[in-house]
């Protein structure tokens, strides 16, 4: 094959992948568009390959089965940053003329136009997981209530556990999520709040793109550059797993505070290397969103931020 053609093709495909990834669908019991008495709620999520959204979807399906008075049409994108794919999913819901959309936006600004389109078409929209950008919403002239946890507050709570364990003046580093992702920014801000409030000393802050292997590489190099690091604030548990691997390899006495509470970190909370992680009850977030969507369908006015509970998980309550 001609090399120039191959290179051109690589570039083309890199551009096309997000477009092609228009999403996996998981339609509840019926994909029927017209309500047969029961309203239909479209649940549009991010990557279903992520355990977190998978649990969220399961929570929603269970919740809807229990309610019995609503039909669920849920779908997710193929990866976390698949904005175009998610726009297509929202438009699909508008075309199907469902009554409400519960949306976990892949991007807090890019999805606002689709939300405005849905609202203007008469659909109720409830925002979950990551908050849509207020300024962008105002500009588009629409409002969508946000039902979800406060990522910044959660990260602060988890970070303060680390501050408590290490004491004032301890040297720490932050591993951030994907640059540009709203929850990554909120968690980073929350960790910074904890650093300030707990009197910690921040030595470095870098992204590990949410991923175990990259966090292992990035933190390994961070620790070489700053051998005196005493604690790490990891923006999710997947990255914490890579960080803990480095700590084990170097036989270092370093504590980790994290976020998400996936089952794989339980052993590290018990052994003490992980001081804390944060459970924001992801599995119930979509279900909460559906409850609010039903309220709105029934004519109730819901606006602003409806905060959902979060819980710091430590050695004492990990079970």
């Amino acid at each position: 094959m001609n090399r120039r053609v191959t290179l051109a093709a690589i570039v083309t495909v890199a551009a096309v992948i997000p477009l092609a990834a228009c999403g996996q669908e998981n339609t509840g019991n019926a994909a029927s568009t017209k309500p047969t008495g029961k309203p239909t709620v479209c649940l549009v999520m991010k990557s279903l390959a992520n355990e977190y959204f998978q649990q969220m979807q399961k929570g929603a399906v269970d919740h809807v089965a229990q309610l019995g008075n609503v039909t669920l049409d849920s779908s997710g994108t193929q990866n976390e940053t698949d904005v175009d794919g998610q726009v297509a999913l929202v438009e699909k819901c508008i075309t199907k003329q469902v009554q409400a959309i519960v949306l976990a936006p892949a991007d807090s600004k890019a999805l606002v136009q689709s939300v405005a389109k849905a609202v203007k078409a008469g659909l109720k929209v409830v925002n979950i997981d990551v908050k849509l950008d207020d300024a962008a919403l105002k500009q588009a002239g629409v409002d969508a209530p946000f039902v979800g946890p406060d990522n910044r507050e959660g990260a602060k709570l988890s970070g303060l556990e680390l501050a408590k364990a290490l004491g004032k003046g301890a040297k720490v580093a932050i591993l951030e999520g994907n640059p540009g992702a709203d929850n990554a920014l909120q968690r980073k801000n929350g960790f910074n709040d904890a650093v300030a409030q707990g009197g910690l000393q921040l030595l470095d802050s870098k992204t590990g793109h949410w991923e175990t292997d990259e966090a292992h590489t990035v933190f390994g190099n961070m620790l070489t550059a700053h051998p005196d690091i005493q604690g790490v604030l990891a923006s999710n548990d997947s990255m914490a797993l890579g960080i803990i691997k480095v700590i084990e390899e170097r036989k270092a006495n370093i504590k980790v505070a994290s976020f998400d509470n996936i089952t794989a970190v339980k052993q590290y909370l018990q052994s003490g290397v992980m001081v804390s992680t944060l459970d924001q009850y992801g599995s119930q977030q979509a279900a909460n969103g559906i409850d609010y969507a039903l309220k709105m369908i029934n004519g109730e006015q819901v606006t602003g931020w409806q905060k959902t509970p979060v819980k710091v998980i430590t050695k004492d309550n990990v079970g």
């Binding site: 094959m1 001609n2 290179l7 990557s47 175990t212 292997d213 797993l241 691997k245 794989a264």
Partner: peptide
């Protein structure tokens, strides 16, 4: 190395591998 396996691991590894081969002087043709 990492003690875990996740279905989302490895995203973008193909491009790192291709980059290593091409930087190493291989021709894509």
């Amino acid at each position: 190395r990492l003690g875990v396996a996740s279905p989302i691991l490895g995203q973008g590894y193909e491009l790192n591998a291709i980059a290593a081969v091409v930087i190493g002087g291989a021709s894509l043709s």
